[in-house]
């Protein structure tokens, strides 16, 4: 019990308001967001998910270490091959792989829980009658998804960097343009890559939040988001559909390798961030339009 808490009298329960003292709400409160994060991080399934996210870079690094790599005949863009020279390439290889499936899967699950999960449990009606304003609830839910995206990407990046450096060491990095950059500059760019990937996953989270307002089945929302992701990847791979590519959420997700040119190629990255932002705004507003007018019958 904290010092401040000791001074508080036993709370009165179930009786009427006697004055106007208790009738002013706190203008800003982070309690709900913190509760939301506690709920996400405390859930066993999510903890398992984080383990899976963390396991992949470890498996990658160990596999590269064990198979005597042959640097000849490989594309310069292959981060994995570079890893033997510099452990900082491990998080990049891990992000490249996990951005295709595992990280989208993670955000798909979290967004399924966000609204559909609460509707399914029936806890949504009790949150709304507390009351939590519907717009505020959506904002808090989305903030927790963005933080969830950051946490997921950070796990992959940090575990990858630690394992990579442990197995292969770190040092000045040979960029894709053939110019060397210093080790701290390399670390800084890996951090930027993580933020860039988190932005993409957070944008997908907005899609997930919208889908989550459409159903009372969290699994249905999760599957829908996965289908959106997979179909986007497939369409992105079809060159004949190039006109469609700028509309795909995953269009520039892999552009982060442009950060490892010297100087970095910003144009694709900025376009990617623009697409993420557009997706986030459009789908958050769609979620808002849907959720604020919805009958809560669960």
């Amino acid at each position: 019990m904290s010092v401040a808490e000791k001074g508080v009298e036993q709370g009165e329960v179930g009786t009427r308001h006697t004055g106007s003292t208790a009738t002013r709400p706190r203008a800003v409160s982070t309690r709900l967001l913190r509760s939301e994060l506690g709920l996400i991080m405390g859930r066993r399934r999510n903890q398992m998910g984080m383990l899976v996210l963390a396991a992949l870079p470890v498996v990658l690094a160990v596999a590269v270490k064990l198979t005597a790599p042959n640097r000849e005949g490989h594309d310069a863009g292959d981060f994995l091959v570079q890893a033997t020279a510099n452990g900082l390439f491990v998080p990049l290889a891990a992000l490249t792989l996990e951005m295709t499936l595992f990280l989208p899967m993670a955000i798909a699950m979290l967004s399924g829980d966000a609204i559909a999960g609460e509707a399914n449990l029936g806890t949504l009606r009790y949150l709304l009658t507390v009351p939590v304003n519907r717009t505020r609830l959506l904002a808090v839910k989305y903030a927790s998804l963005v933080i969830g995206a950051l946490i997921g990407v950070t796990i992959v990046t940090v575990v990858g960097a630690v394992v990579g450096i442990a197995l292969f060491g770190a040092g000045p990095m040979l960029t894709l343009s053939g110019v060397q950059i210093g080790v701290w500059s390399a670390v800084g760019r890996v951090a930027l890559v993580a933020l860039y990937c988190a932005a993409g996953i957070a944008a997908l989270g907005a899609v997930g939040l919208f889908v989550s307002t459409l159903t009372e089945q969290p699994m249905a929302a999760t599957v829908t988001v996965m289908i959106v992701t997979i179909v986007s990847w497939i369409l992105l791979g079809v060159n004949q559909l190039a006109f469609l590519h700028p509309w795909l959420i995953v269009d520039h997700w892999m552009s982060f390798s442009d950060l490892f040119r010297e100087p970095p190629l910003w144009s694709n990255l900025l376009q990617g961030l623009g697409q993420d932002l557009a997706y986030a705004v459009v789908f958050w507003l769609a979620a808002w339009a849907r959720f604020t007018s919805k009958d809560i019958t669960s």
Partner: peptide, 14 residues
């Protein structure tokens, strides 16, 4: 925690 009118310091006792 969801209630902006609730005083966090008295949460435990309430």
């Amino acid at each position: 925690a969801a209630d902006r009118y609730a005083d966090p310091w008295s949460a435990r006792s309430r």
